[in-house]
Amino acid sequence: MANYTLTASSPLAGLQQEYQGVTLAEVTNKALVSISVPLGGETALQTAVTATYGVTLPVTGKSSKTSVDNALFAGMSRDQCWLFFETDNIRPVNIITEKLGASGYYTDQSDSWVMLSLAGEKSRDVLERICPINLDPDVFLIGDVARTSMEHMGSIILRESEHNYLLCSARSSANSFVHAIELSIKNVI
């Protein structure tokens, strides 16, 4: 019988770095579940989301925040919203299912990504070296989200506040991703 215990480890072991004008830290307290919209089920899903989270589903490239579970809905494509939220439940899909029932298709993505917070007034100077998206603060607004490629790695960038960004990239290449950011920091700061 099972006398063994499994311990969880995050891709970057909770990395945290401070530099002049920017901090880089691994985010380990967030679950990520993708919610796909069933064909023709937009209204039903929207109704369920509004009823339980009190927000409307964002369009692609935008996000909406709610205080429920400190959650953020990010519009990733026309039929997909990704939900970032705080939980220590190892089955985050169950939480969504409880709230939204069968109004969407849910896939746990929590372990698929390394999440990093890049914060501080130099963050855009750092990102300029790796991110092809136009991050002009008047163009990429707070709450905007984009999926793109940085240094050949698929990435998600979300603007959380004036100078703070959440960056996600594949868990398996987390070391390469953080290296790309650290190299940018070294080159810029």
Binding site: G61, R78, P132, T148, S149
Partner: peptide, 10 residues
């Protein structure tokens, strides 16, 4: 159409 101008390399 949804995301605006993006580099063809994507």
């Amino acid at each position: 159409p949804l995301l605006g101008p993006r580099d063809a390399s994507e």
